[in-house]
């Protein structure tokens, strides 16, 4: 039997959050953390968490699993259980709505701030805008972000300044558009980021890189933006 300890909080019933302990029979199988949660929900339907694709592409089930942020659906027990114990908490740093469900508005607000859409005011051609494979390759490692928030909620700078620091996820997306040969708003984008907080609160701690379930590297993208900002200032 696997010992599972889960963060519980229902604002209508509980005066404060608590950890609830369960025992789960995994039949010795190395299942995913999401499978354990689904199994528990059969016994206790009041347990609330988000999930959708169950294959690591929708970004719904970002959780703090035995101390590390990750997606429940692609985290096998073998990488999360320590001493026969699995500890599941909501992603840290954002308000809890209920149990493992957090309020992500601040995270999304930072994403919206970077104007996460193509800007190109030249008349569109009758076919696609051409882009060489080399230009397109610059978007690899950027566009794959699934907005799960594992990175931003692992970032101390984001914990301190969630209103002012864009955070690793938003900055990765900011660079995704800066790096796109089809986007023409580079100056405008850089001007929007050019303040002491939006980018420069990143202290290169690299928690984001360590936890990204898609293997992306926000710190590197932030480095590129810094260079672009410094260059445009001189």
């Amino acid at each position: 039997m696997l010992n599972v300890s889960i963060y519980r909080y229902n604002p209508e019933v509980d005066s404060e959050p608590y950890m609830q302990d369960y025992q789960v029979d995994t039949q010795g199988k190395d299942v995913m953390v999401l499978d354990v949660l689904e199994k528990l929900k059969v016994e206790d339907p009041s347990l609330s968490f988000r999930r959708s694709c169950r294959e690591g592409v929708c970004g719904s089930d970002g959780l703090n699993i035995s101390g590390k942020n990750g997606l429940a659906c692609i985290t096998p027990l073998s990488s999360a259980v320590k001493g026969n114990k699995l500890v599941i908490r909501p992603l840290p740093g954002l308000p809890v709505i209920r149990d493992l469900v957090i309020d992500m508005s601040q995270f999304y607000a930072q994403y919206e701030k970077i104007q996460p859409y193509m800007i190109n005011n030249s008349p569109a051609p009758a076919i696609e805008r051409l882009q060489s494979p080399e230009e397109r390759a610059k978007l690899d490692g950027l566009y794959e972000c699934i907005l799960c928030a594992c990175c931003s909620t692992a970032c101390p700078s984001f914990w301190w300044n969630p209103e002012k620091f864009i955070g690793p996820s938003g900055l990765l997306q900011a660079y995704r558009f800066l790096a796109d040969s089809r986007d023409t708003a580079t100056e405008e984008r850089l001007a929007n980021l050019d303040d002491p907080f939006s980018v420069f609160r990143c202290h290169g701690i690299m928690n984001c890189v360590q936890v990204c379930p898609k293997g992306l590297n926000p710190t590197k993208a932030i480095g590129h933006i810094r260079n672009m900002l410094v260059r445009s200032a001189t």
Binding site: Y117, M118, E128, L130, Q131, S132, P133, R136, D180, R182
Partner: peptide, 19 residues
């Protein structure tokens, strides 16, 4: 499709730069 590309969809590319 071309509308989506103009909106920024990061299609893979051919040597000619097409989708």
């Amino acid at each position: 499709i071309f509308e989506l590309e103009h909106m920024g969809l990061p299609f893979s590319r051919t040597e000619e730069g097409r989708i």
